[in-house]
Amino acid sequence: MQISFTLNAKPVTLDVEPATLVTELLREHLNLTGTHIGCDTSQCGACVVHLDGLAVKSCTLLAPALQGKSLVTIEGLQGAPGSNQLHPMQEAFRQHHGLQCGFCTPGMVMSAIALAHAKAALTEAEVRRGLEGNICRCTGYQNIVLAVMAGTAAMHGAGSGE
């Protein structure tokens, strides 16, 4: 079947098998390998992307659901529009050492940005609860939480976005 959607701000039209997961579409067909696959049970959050602004698990989303929607992946993030800068949330992860192996990071960053869009000032407890669907096997979460709080502040202060 044919689907048309917006991928990282660019319109795309593709022929897909309905039984295609969005993770598979991104990684195997479109060479966007920033979106990771960390589990088979929809629990780890390494695959989180934004579908019409909502954080969703692309490993548990069928390609036909993209029809007419806007999809943003980790590759679609940027600082100032058109620049090569990191998005403020990515920059905060770098500054606060919010990653070790980095496998969980794309999903963490995408979930964190959705959280920051929903609420301008986040408490530590809200950040921890908001990241319940993102598992990290390395960091122990401390620095991720620090990064998300700083990134949220930077997003709302500096006024830049996706």
Partner: peptide
């Protein structure tokens, strides 16, 4: 229920 991404879908 679940986590934020589960609740979004």
């Amino acid at each position: 229920i679940g986590d934020p991404a589960v609740r979004d879908r």
